[in-house]
Design a binder for these strands. Structure first.
Lengths: 338, 338
DNA sequence: ACTCCTCACTAAACCGGTTTAGTAGTAAGA
DNA sequence: TCTTACTACTAAACCGGTTTAGTGAGGAGT
């Protein structure tokens, strides 16, 4: 980046201002001069410095994403890579880039947002929204525009991009009820997350609607180990469930493995559903019935709304995307008659 | 970011320069004045704009990572999330951030690098290095400093951070030979990647060292579907292998699933090994013997070397990390005697 | 009493763009 | 012919920091 606008200006025999006008397609330079300037710029291999431009326009031309997850858990979740790829499909059409921050410790999360707020990004996308999420106040303090994934349970000044998880869970539970199951458990994710809560609520409500009780619940943490432990506890009960709805595919996989290695046949003795439709889920034995969200689309739209918010073209309202769909595979089957 | 250094300066009754000196711990301001300035800054909630600082210092305070993968493949690979988390552990100790770009189309990749080169990042980390990688020339043109993951097979001016994959594959093949296998196949990843090649070479050489031929090779593409197809072809052969070394866990999972659903018992009739040690691999039935790299460490060290390169403290030499280890599980067993 | 230093601080240049105000030249209109 | 309007361009301010050169005061040395 040694070549600057001044070099181009003197090469073309004009002022810096003229070069700027020519480059940005503004009126104020004659057509022949414009061509001369552009030729000089190309000859010198000049591209305007985003830093300088950003200083003047007070923009960073970047969006931020802070992922607060344990490093170990991160690699297991098919959500983020696809979500990020979705963000990129939008950013590729704009002169924006994505600044990614992974915060493993809790204190690191706030530090990450503060780091981004010193002018590195123009706005952030809030994922993994938590119950009473402290980041809402933090972002207000930092004056950082944002969009949230789904609407927080506390008042939020930010537009939300919503993909309701409850529909999918409801469909899974109804599917199991239809197969004759009455003892349907739920191994949930951390209830600190609003998506952990909404999945549990959907499960409980679907059971309630069928006149069934929602007592077979265990809170796990989205990890395979957690899913395994929860499954062990459930299967040790007197009133052992005949079906388990897991809050993600990884816990379901661990549950499946535990059941099979302990003589519980799937789906003969136990039906199992996951969530996420991870690539490996259809290659399990039996293939996993699961719920397929569209994280790519979610990322794409989240970035879109945030960019719209930044340039004033978005009205601030929520955007509701089509909900995840139940994918039927062989891990669910009829309840064994007693 | 409405509050600037000038606001702080007038609030403290000093000049802009004094504020800058005070903030950065330079000599040239008295201790009492320094305290007054810092107090004023805190009262106003001022943090210096990275944009302005970057303009003066010609630095972006960011590293870049371009991931060129199909969006679908991305979510399946446990490597990148952990690798990125590793990068972050280093960046958290510095005032640098990570700019991430996902390029799904091939043309998009070059565009991504060009986008980063206009002053958004100070250097990039090159992953998924390809045979005769065209990005080396591109980076030279863009004058972007870089580190590569493993040493490219063409001359490269950049330091490489190396984690040799061949040791793990060699160990896997030797393990299988020890179990009495003689027909050991390899389902490789795309040979356009140097890690696809080196894994194949290690497999072939380990076989050669034992006096066995390396003819049972199929090139797949790291996807589950590819792994399944390759497995189908291998199992259809007259001289069907008794063991398959896969280039990643996902292909191994698909192969396992295919074998089992076609009456081939694992490890009774067929032993299987993966690569990556994905979280779900130990929850398969049987649990997958695989090769565990340490992507977190790799990311951490890659960022370290790149930062060192940027501030001149790195000498430009390669850094060699400890190689991935074979993780023995139940998907490998003794070859069935004919 | 004079020079010479050092210290604490200010003014101004600077990074590389964008943008505004201003100027010269030309053409149209009265 | 003189004003008016418009075009094409330049000079300079500006964004928000850092950094250099310069200034005035106070103390030490001779």
């Amino acid at each position: 980046m040694a070549v600057t606008i001044s070099d181009v200006a003197s090469a073309a025999g004009v002022s810096k201002g003229a070069v700027s006008l020519a480059l940005n397609g503004q009126t104020g330079v004659g057509e022949d001069t414009r061509q001369r300037i552009l030729a000089a710029a190309k000859a010198l291999g000049w591209t305007p410095s985003l830093r300088a431009r950003g200083l003047k326009s007070s923009k960073a031309y970047a969006l931020g994403l802070v992922i607060a997850r344990d490093a170990k858990l991160l690699g297991t979740d098919p959500f983020f890579p696809a979500f990020i790829a979705g963000i990129e499909t939008t950013l590729a059409e704009h002169e924006y880039t994505l600044v990614l921050s992974v915060a493993t410790a809790r204190g690191a999360e706030e530090r990450s947002y503060r780091k981004l707020a010193d002018g590195r990004v123009d706005g952030v996308i809030l994922t993994d929204v938590r119950h009473d999420d402290s980041r809402l106040a933090l972002l207000r303090e930092l004056k950082l525009p944002a969009v949230t994934l789904n609407r927080p349970d506390a008042p939020s000044p930010f537009p939300a991009v919503c993909m309701d998880d409850s529909d999918g869970i409801t469909a899974a539970v109804e599917h199991l009820i239809q197969l004759g199951h009455t003892r349907i458990a739920h191994v949930g994710g951390a209830q600190a997350y609003i998506h952990g809560r909404s999945r549990r609520r959907a499960w409980a409500e679907a059971l309630g609607a069928a006149g069934l009780g929602a007592d077979l619940f265990i809170e796990a943490d989205f990890t395979a180990a957690g899913g395994q432990t929860a499954t062990e506890k459930l299967l040790a009960r007197e009133d052992r469930p005949t079906a388990i709805v897991y809050a993600n595919d990884l816990m379901a996989t661990a549950g499946l493995s535990f059941a099979q290695t302990h003589g519980v046949s799937v789906p003969g003795d136990l039906s199992i559903t996951g969530y996420d439709n991870a690539e490996f889920a259809r290659y399990l034995n039996p293939p996993l019935t699961t719920i397929a969200a569209d994280p790519l689309q979610w990322g794409r739209q989240a970035a879109r709304v945030l960019l719209g918010l930044l340039d004033g073209s978005h009205d601030g309202g929520d955007l509701v995307l089509s909900p995840p769909q139940l994918v039927l595979r062989a891990s669910t089957g009829p309840a064994r008659q007693p």
